[in-house]
Structures are given as C-alpha cells and as structure tokens.
Simulated assay, not measured.
Amino acid sequence: MRRSVRCGAVGALLVVSAAAACTPPQLDRAEHRTSPTATPRTLASKGFPPDAAQARTQLAGLTVAWGKNWETYERSKFGDGWSDDVDAPGGRNGCDTRDDVLRRDLTDLREGDRNPCVVLSGTLHDPYTGKDLPYSYRRASQIQTDHVVALGAAWRAGAWAWTPKERLTYANDLDVLLATDKTTNYEKSSKTPDKWKPPNRGYWCAYGRRWTGIKHKYRLTVTAPEKLALQDLLATCPAEIR
C-alpha cells in the first residue's frame, strides 16, 4: 500500500501552508509507480494554484462581462467522457483522467497490481465539506470528479468560442479537477462563487485561488457579482499569505 500526502491548511486540499502555495506531492523514487506507458504523470502546472497575492493580481486582470451563449451549451461539446490525449497536466500518461485525480487526491491509496493506473480503494478528505469519504472501485462511491469551474460556467465565460480540441483539453486538465463529495457536487452544479460556496469555510481561500487561477489560465471572463465573490473568498486567506 502506498500513501499519498494531502497538503493541508485550514482543512483544505491543495491549499497553501504558511507562505507558499502547496503543490501536489511527488512520490519518492523508490515508491514511484509509472503508468503502463512508463510515462511519469504530471499532477499540476508549475505555480498552480496561485497563492493569494498572485490570485488577486490575476483577478484584477480578468475581463468583466456577462456570460454569453448559455442556451447553446452541451456537455458533448467538451468531448465524450475522459481523454488522455490532451496537452495538459495528466495528459498522455496512459491513465484515465479520473484515475489521475483519484491518485492525486486520495490518501491510504491502493492501486491495481496489473494496472497501477486503477485506484482500488482510498480515502478522500473532501475539500468542499471537510468530511473523510471512503472510496472503493467495486462499490458505489460518494466521490465524484468535479470541474471546479464547471463546463457550463466555462462555456458562458468564453469556451463557446474555443475549438473542440481546446474544450477537450479543458475538460481533462487536472488543474481544473478535484475529487469531491457527490451530493455537494450536485448542489454546486455550474454555479459561480456568487451563487455557491463550499460548505467548508476553511476551504474558501483555496477555492477562490483555484477558481481565479483557472479563469486566468484559460482567459475566461468573470461577471461583476462573481468577481466580488472571489474577492470575498480571497479575503479569507490567512494574513501571512495575503
């Protein structure tokens, strides 16, 4: 059994600790299991998510505009299911995108012997609720893979103008994805932060940083209420990392 490490500050997943943004853990060489294609997985873009100060700078630079073309959104426009054929963190490593997310976000991880991509079991410290959720490959799970800035929200903010390949990349970018509680994910749906925030207030800082980082990375717009809500989320970051 290999244990992954969860970054922690105020009960959050992938959150800053003290003065710097926390990046997903890398395995020791002795423990490193490669995918079936022997390609080491990339867990996140360099410098992602941004720290609080960077996020504020990025937020200030985002274009403020109302969403467009909401009525033309369809999930299929972001590709059919998960794809490994993308130029994004997690892409082209021979593993399913969901398995990449589970391997990154779960602790007490047990991987398949024949296929180390497959996650057989583990535990998620859910960032949205703060609950510890068990995961089992062979049983129905309360754990889903959430697009933090949902596909519908991305569509309204500019993805409607992207190419199909660009939308496929977004849908499978590990920077955009988190393992989360199923019920809470349904409640979140495609809502922006002015309409939904994680029940776990300890994750608000990280949520604001991650949401802003995604919008900046993909040059998506924000609405005026959304921008104000993100400013409020970033205001919850501890003083030493503001």
Rank of each mutant, 00 (worst) to 15 (best):
residue 174 L to D: 06
residue 196 W to Q: 00
residue 56 R to S: 12
residue 145 T to H: 07
residue 196 W to D: 00
residue 171 A to I: 03
residue 223 T to M: 05
residue 173 D to F: 13
residue 241 I to H: 00
residue 233 L to H: 04
residue 50 P to L: 00
residue 35 S to P: 01
residue 183 T to C: 08
residue 217 K to N: 08
residue 111 E to Q: 13
residue 159 A to R: 08
residue 195 K to A: 15
residue 196 W to K: 04
residue 199 P to I: 06
residue 60 A to L: 00
residue 169 T to G: 08
residue 93 N to A: 13
residue 154 A to L: 03
residue 107 T to A: 13
residue 106 L to Q: 11
residue 92 R to D: 12
residue 228 L to F: 15
residue 211 W to F: 14
residue 144 Q to T: 15
residue 145 T to L: 11
residue 213 G to C: 06
residue 136 S to T: 00
residue 5 V to T: 08
residue 208 G to P: 10
residue 97 T to Q: 12
residue 149 V to K: 06
residue 84 D to F: 11
residue 27 L to T: 10
residue 238 P to V: 07
residue 119 V to H: 06
residue 86 V to T: 06
residue 155 W to F: 13
residue 63 T to E: 15
residue 234 L to Q: 06
residue 201 R to D: 15
residue 200 N to E: 06
residue 58 Q to K: 08
residue 21 A to K: 00
residue 1 M to S: 02
residue 18 A to E: 06
residue 111 E to C: 09
residue 164 P to H: 13
residue 74 E to M: 05
residue 28 D to T: 04
residue 199 P to D: 10
residue 146 D to M: 10
residue 66 W to K: 13
residue 109 L to Y: 10
residue 69 N to M: 11
residue 107 T to I: 15
residue 174 L to F: 01
residue 152 G to V: 07
residue 23 T to R: 09
residue 124 L to P: 05
residue 14 L to F: 14
residue 106 L to N: 09
residue 221 T to S: 15
residue 238 P to K: 02
residue 121 S to E: 14
residue 53 A to F: 03
residue 122 G to M: 04
residue 38 A to S: 03
residue 192 T to G: 05
residue 194 D to W: 03
residue 139 R to A: 07
residue 142 Q to F: 05
residue 51 D to M: 01
residue 13 L to Q: 02
residue 58 Q to A: 14
residue 3 R to T: 04
residue 143 I to S: 14
residue 97 T to N: 06
residue 138 R to K: 13
residue 228 L to D: 13
